[in-house]
Write a protein that binds this DNA or RNA. Structure first.
Lengths: 196, 196
DNA sequence: TAAGTCATGTAAAAAGTTACATGATTCT
DNA sequence: AGAATCATGTAACTTTTTACATGACTTA
């Protein structure tokens, strides 16, 4: 076992620092609250919780439920909270980026611009759907935390600041899509005109 | 072996579609040309080239050199070029994003704003260094391709479009950092003032 | 002489995805 | 009756990182 938690471990601790959650809850919360910058499947979450528990960063107690399967509710420990806070301010290097859209864009010169156009438009649609969901999240956050969102010592701030980042990035990505569409259709337009 | 190439496989094909390269060259080109949206170490590249070769998407010939180790120069095949072009326009889902800065931001409410501030400033510095390097790349691209950069059927377009995306994203990330710094220092400012 | 570049690989481990596995309840 | 939700896990596989391994030549 490595000396430090993985990024996923810290993601889970970040959620547990706000409220105790079961593995199932963590899976939902991760995708709902951190989904636009970190994700994991439940098959990765359950083993990770075991590691956190062995390290003493979380504890759990079994909760029996009526009409539902029993669950294990995890809570962050003092040591876990300290490890998390240390990690937040520790120097680090960003993980290697993986933007498949750009990988495809790099080789778009090989295909007819009209086909490339379809790919870019599909991407734009995905982005706009995402932006729509951000709006709902912002409304929900504002209702839950109010003016506390701008207060960096309140838990609401984390969700707000990361959401803001997501919105800014997605908007800019849509702008890039628009530029791509213009450039690509300009070309097909010229091609069509020259054939007339 | 899976039926399709991995993303890395297509990244390498994308480079080889422009010119034949050795494994070593591919490693350099990958980080120089695609470094801000896809990376790989040489330990991943060499095995991947073997897979591409077994699939018939690339061929190689040994080139003996004087005063330097021999090298294997890889070229894309017709089948490889077709597979690449198909992949460029195929529907897909973006790989899961991994933005560690946001993971840390989510838990920043746990630490004193002054410490969080340091982290954000360090991030901003990294981003501005990146932006500086983009400038050099743009100059180099413009010299090499001229007005062909805006022509979607010329190879220069791929590099130009992806670079543009990178510049737009990084600028927006810097703007987010500035907002964070404002919000975090506002808070420390208030704290300091209230203690006076 | 030490560090850096050119050049190619393998091994081990960590991180992440997909598939397998089970079972009760609730909603359509 | 079938699909969705709640709930927890394991197994197999792919992808990525880190470390190991070698060796000639060039530059400071």
């Amino acid at each position: 076992m490595p000396t430090e938690n993985s990024s996923l471990g810290f993601a889970l601790l970040g959620l547990l620092a706000r409220e105790p959650l079961s593995g199932y809850d963590l899976s939902q919360s991760l995708s709902r609250r951190m989904g636009w910058y970190w994700t994991a499947r439940h098959s990765q979450i359950y083993p990770e919780l075991k590691k956190l528990q062995k390290r003493g960063h979380v504890t759990f107690k079994k909760v029996e439920q009526q009409g539902r399967p029993d669950k294990k509710v995890y809570s962050i420990t003092t040591a876990g909270k300290r490890a998390l806070a240390d990690w937040v301010v520790a120097p680090f290097e960003e993980a290697q980026p993986r933007e498949e859209m750009l990988l495809r864009t790099y080789s778009m010169w090989l295909v007819p611009p009209a086909r490339a156009l379809e790919q870019v438009k599909a991407h734009q649609t995905r982005l706009e759907e995402l932006l729509g969901r951000y709006d709902e999240v912002e409304t929900r956050l504002r209702k839950k935390y109010g003016d506390d969102l701008e207060d960096p010592s309140k838990p609401g701030f984390g969700g707000y600041a990361t959401l803001k980042y997501g919105v800014m990035q997605r908007r800019e990505q849509v702008a890039w899509c628009r530029w791509m569409i213009e450039t690509l259709s300009g070309e097909t337009g010229r091609a069509k005109r020259s054939k007339q």
